[in-house]
């Protein structure tokens, strides 16, 4: 459905030295992700998905193999180059939101742009506002992050991931801290973003969630054991509508 390759990894390995022992967290992982895909990377803890996510997010470098992000090899970049790459190409979303407390939603969303030298103050506020509107928080811009619900906080975090116009959004257990209802609200938001053309990688250990994405990569013991395309993903909005409304 798309033609441009955003992520291209080939025979990726990552070893950790723990005392005398070498731990092989990734043992030769290869796949490529095209523009506009919504990929779920799934695996139990210890499967290597966190390590893979760190490498995909340019926080870590592989021991062996190649990683091309948006056409450039990350493996031989310096720390500063990777930081700049994270700033311009990647939007992170974390399980625990990681918002700055005592800071407004708007300032939280604008944060990545502060580290981008090409954006002035007016543009910064403009883009942050737009991102908040995109995630449905136009009426919460000046609320402090610690005065918001979990779902709202995660929406702010998503807006923060979008504000730099990244080529890929990396979500790490983005619904892990939320109740079922809110989880599906967030998932629905991800599907909307996907519809609008964003490329998303969703890392989770919850098999249920894979039904809502267009592709699922299953990891176990540092290797890919399955890579399946889902031609008819479920709609999170529909699932949400079917949920019994226990609040009422």
């Amino acid at each position: 459905m798309a033609n441009k390759s955003i992520i291209d990894i080939n025979n990726l390995t990552r070893n950790f030295q723990v005392g005398d022992e070498t731990v092989h967290a990734l043992r030769g992982v290869s796949f490529s992700i095209q523009e506009g895909e919504f990929v779920t990377i799934m695996g139990t803890s210890g499967s290597g998905k966190s390590t893979l996510l760190n490498i995909l997010g340019c926080l870590d470098t592989p021991t062996g193999g190649n990683y091309l992000l948006d056409g450039e090899s990350v493996g031989n970049m310096s720390k500063d180059q990777r930081a700049e790459y994270r700033n311009r190409k990647i939007g992170f979303i974390f399980q625990s939101y990681n918002l700055l407390s005592r800071t407004t939603a708007l300032d939280n969303v604008a944060l990545p742009l502060l580290y981008n030298g090409f954006v002035n103050k007016a543009q910064r506020i403009e883009r942050a506002k737009q991102a908040l509107i995109d995630v449905g928080l136009s009426n919460r811009m000046y609320h402090f992050s610690n005065q918001m619900s979990g779902g709202q906080q995660q929406r702010v975090a998503i807006a923060r991931a979008l504000v730099n116009n990244p080529v890929i959004i990396l979500a790490d257990e983005a619904t892990g801290n939320l109740d079922t209802r809110t989880s599906f609200e967030i998932l629905s938001l991800f599907q909307d973003l996907h519809q609008s053309g964003k490329t998303i990688i969703f890392v989770t250990h919850n098999p249920e969630l894979s039904q809502y994405s267009s592709r699922t990569i299953l990891l176990r013991d540092g290797k890919i054991i399955s890579d399946t395309y889902n031609s008819h993903p479920l709609s999170a909005a529909e699932t949400l509508a079917k949920l019994p409304n226990i609040d009422l």
């Binding site: 926080l59 930081a83 994270r86 700033n87 992170f92 700055l100 990545p112 580290y115």
Partner: peptide, 11 residues
């Protein structure tokens, strides 16, 4: 950690 992951360099 957050600042670094959204693009802050060491300096």
């Amino acid at each position: 950690g957050l600042r670094m992951s959204i693009g802050a360099k060491e300096k």
